[in-house]
């Protein structure tokens, strides 16, 4: 469905995408993960040509998006996009936000578009907000409207660029559950995300991007539990450690202390060590090295690193 070959893109001398190659089939739900600034957003924005690639080809259903004469509007119509910052149209109410492009671009009659918009709003659980203004909505509600707006064009592909990063933690769930529901419908989706648990659960495939390329490509299990290449291991490991730390904090603050502390710690350790599994005996050294890294990056404190080391001693 989407075929990317030798995609290159730089900004003022900095080569962000060096050589991206990937084939994505119909109905695949692809999560894209990777460190900040590695060009995940840039890659997504190249797909619907919000950025102009420097070179390489992108075929969508066999149509070359990078061709000088490509009908961008036609390509974009078939590829919906959901942004980190929602980007709802401030001068229109919720219903009109969902309705506008149908009427303006597809020429759908007003009543038909309105009916469809209401259906979509119901699907994302916001039918009662049809005449609210974007400013009157919470972040999670805004993002759900943005999803409905993208769906209104009946796209074949949906691109999500960190759809939950700008959200209050309490609102992440409502948005993710909408995306999960969508994934079940067989829609082709590309999701840039930092929500590893979600990526693992929802996607059929994970791309780890680093160094300007698709550094590692595999199933969620392969990437999260058995990463093969050093940068992936480091990244996933860090994410797991970070996750473990978050849980420890919750434990310490008593939020999770319902008498299952031991059980949770055990789970945590399991998760923690997963990506490092294939180092075999070198696993502990590897984890220690990663912890040192995180300590020097300021991601964790000395006390926390001690604590992890202490738990690891039990392994």
């Amino acid at each position: 469905m989407i075929s990317v070959r030798h995609l290159k893109k730089g900004f003022g001398g900095v080569q962000v995408l060096k050589d991206v190659n990937v084939e994505i089939g119909k109905g695949e739900v692809v999560s894209i993960i990777g460190p900040s600034g590695t060009g995940k957003s840039t890659f997504l924005r190249c797909l619907n040509r919000l950025e102009k690639p420097d070179s390489g080809t992108i075929l969508v259903d066999g149509i070359d998006v990078t061709a000088p004469k490509a009908d961008l509007a036609a390509v974009r119509r078939r590829m919906g996009m959901v942004f980190q910052n929602f980007n709802l149209f401030g001068n229109l109410n919720v219903l009109d936000n969902v309705k506008a492009a149908q009427c303006d671009i597809l020429g759908t009659p007003k009543e038909v578009a309105a009916r469809k918009a209401l259906e979509l709003l119901a699907r994302v659980g916001l039918a009662n907000k049809a005449d609210a203004l974007p400013d009157e909505l919470s972040g999670g509600q805004k993002q759900r409207v943005a999803i409905a707006r993208a769906l209104a064009m009946d796209p074949e592909i949906l691109l999500f660029d960190e759809p939950t990063s700008a959200l209050d933690p309490t609102m992440v769930g409502e948005v993710l559950s909408v995306i999960k529901d969508l994934a079940k419908t067989g829609m082709t989706m590309l999701i840039v995300t930092h929500e590893m648990g979600f990526a693992r659960e929802v996607s059929t495939r994970v791309l780890y991007m680093d160094e300007g390329i698709v550094y590692e490509d595999g199933t969620p299990d392969e990437i999260f539990s058995h990463p093969q290449k050093p940068k992936t291991i480091e990244f996933v490991g860090k994410v797991c450690l970070k996750h473990a730390l978050d849980m420890m904090r919750l434990l310490r603050e008593g939020i999770l202390s319902d008498g299952r502390v031991d059980e949770i710690e055990a789970q945590m350790l399991l998760r923690l060590s997963e990506p490092f599994e294939h180092f075999g005996d070198g696993k502990l050294n590897r984890i220690a090295a990663t912890l040192r890294d995180m300590l020097s990056d300021g991601v964790i404190t000395e006390a926390e690193s001690q604590q992890i080391a202490h738990i690891l001693g039990g392994l």
């Binding site: 619907n48 919000l50 509007a73 036609a74 974009r76 119509r77 590829m79 919906g80 996009m81 942004f83 910052n85 929602f86 980007n87 709802l88 149209f89 401030g90 001068n91 229109l92 506008a100 492009a101 303006d104 671009i105 943005a146 707006r149 993208a150 064009m153």
Partner: peptide, 21 residues
């Protein structure tokens, strides 16, 4: 600026996105 991008992503031309939103 994101609103313009959202409009472009929906298939609006830059001119039309400007006038409409």
């Amino acid at each position: 600026r994101g609103q313009t991008e959202a409009a472009l992503a929906l298939g609006y031309t830059p001119q039309r996105a400007f006038l409409r939103f």
